[in-house]
Computed example of a mutant assay.
Amino acid sequence: MSEQDDTQREYDLRWADDAEHKEPSARARMLAARWKNDPPRPQPFRADPEPRTARRSSWASTAIVLGCVVAVILVLGYARFQAPY
């Protein structure tokens, strides 16, 4: 890209940013039209999150991971034991 193209592009961006009237985005127009007839309910600044489902304890997750590692080690050891040299 030449330096003249950069200058022209910068000018175009400044011209666009300095526009007196800026058209709202499509999403803003859609929400304005929807909210005109059916405004959203007010919500507190930090709404309460949805209740979380019960999760496994960290010990259970650790036991599952370690169990998988031990199983892989045993399978690899058995395969090496069975392989002829």
Score class of each variant (00 low, 15 high):
Ala16Pro: 00
Arg34Thr: 11
Arg55Val: 13
Val75Asp: 05
Asp5Glu: 06
Ala33Phe: 02
Val70Ile: 05
Lys36Val: 00
Gln43Ile: 10
Asp12Ile: 12
Ala28Cys: 02
Ala83His: 03
Tyr78Val: 13
Asp48Ile: 11
Arg9Glu: 03
Ser58Asn: 15
Met30Lys: 09
Arg46Phe: 11
Gln8Ala: 10
Ala19Asn: 03
Val65Leu: 12
Arg56Lys: 15
Val75Met: 06
Lys36Ile: 02
Asp6Lys: 00
Ala32Lys: 00
Gly77His: 03
Gln82Trp: 12
Arg52Leu: 14
Ala63Lys: 12
Ala54Lys: 15
Ile73Pro: 07
Ala47Glu: 02
Pro51Trp: 04
Lys22Leu: 06
Ala54Trp: 14
Ala26Asp: 11
Thr53Cys: 14
Arg80Ser: 13
Glu3Gln: 14
Arg55Lys: 15
Pro40Asn: 01
Asp18Gln: 12
Leu76Met: 08
Lys22Asp: 09
Pro51Phe: 07
Arg46Thr: 05
Ala47Lys: 09
Ser2Tyr: 10
Arg14Gly: 01
Pro84Ser: 06
Ile73Leu: 11
Gln8Gly: 08
Asp6Trp: 07
Tyr78Gln: 10
Arg80Asp: 14
Pro24Tyr: 01
Thr7Gln: 11
Tyr85Glu: 06
Leu13Asn: 09
Leu76Ser: 08
Glu23Pro: 01
Ala54Glu: 15
Trp35Asn: 05
Pro44Val: 05
